[in-house]
Amino acid sequence: MSMLKSSVGRKLTMAVTGAILVLFILGHVLGNMSIFVGPEGINAYAVHLRDLGPLLWVVRLVMLVVFVLHVWFGIQLTLENRAARPVDYQQKKNLVTTFAAKTMIVSGLVLLAFVIYHVLHFTLHVGVDNVDQLAKAYMGEHFDVYTMVVTGFGKAINVLVYVAAMILLFFHVSHGFQSFLQTLGLSNECVQPKYQAVGKFLALVVSIGFISIPVLIMVGIVKL
């Protein structure tokens, strides 16, 4: 039985890649908090990341593969699941499932669009004003991430997109966290409610962490 054909095999792949994505966003939100230290904080963090050199590229490559697998199987499994009930109920009452669980594909696809937008924006600097000036603005030789982020969130539309995407991230992770533990065979009826609570809490902390940056910039607490 092939791991990439069977239902449970593909679910395990979803779970492993989902768990790696959760670890990634945890690291990401922690790293981003350095913006509250000021320009030196996040710029120094960015320089440290770049100093990793080839290792950074290995991490990026792994994340790309993880992300593509997660998205690919997510779409494939969802399509199969829809096909498994060709005629729908006239009346169907769900008893325990959550809004987050029912909308995984929606939150997932919006996150996919968001990740593309986000990488174009902050990694590839598409639509960033004065890129040439920023390029050597930090200590005369490094890219000034701080200024880019603060000016980027001067635009209301960017703030809106980030806040909306992070609300969907909350939903995705609030179901996803307990889901990957269940899928990886680590759950039972005693720990399942605890996983659900921890997942919601973690999702809340992460999304509030991410949201705090554009919001605090917008209200002028974090500024140039």
């Binding site: 239902s7 449970v8 095999g9 593909r10 679910k11 395990l12 499994l77 199969e80 699941n81 096909a83 498994a84 009930r85 769900n94 008893l95 325990v96 499932t97 669980a101 029912k102 995984m104 179901h175 307990q178 889901s179 269940q182 899928t183 990886l184 065979g185 680590l186 759950s187 039972n188 009826e189 399942q192």
Partner: peptide
């Protein structure tokens, strides 16, 4: 279809079979 951990099955099961067994199944695999 494939299981995405909605746990509706457990709520409907007349014999109270727990989704913990699905987690066990995954571990066995």
């Amino acid at each position: 279809g494939n299981c995405t951990n909605h746990y509706e099955c457990e709520a409907a099961c007349p014999k109270g079979v727990k989704t913990a067994f699905i987690s066990y199944l995954n571990k066995e695999l």
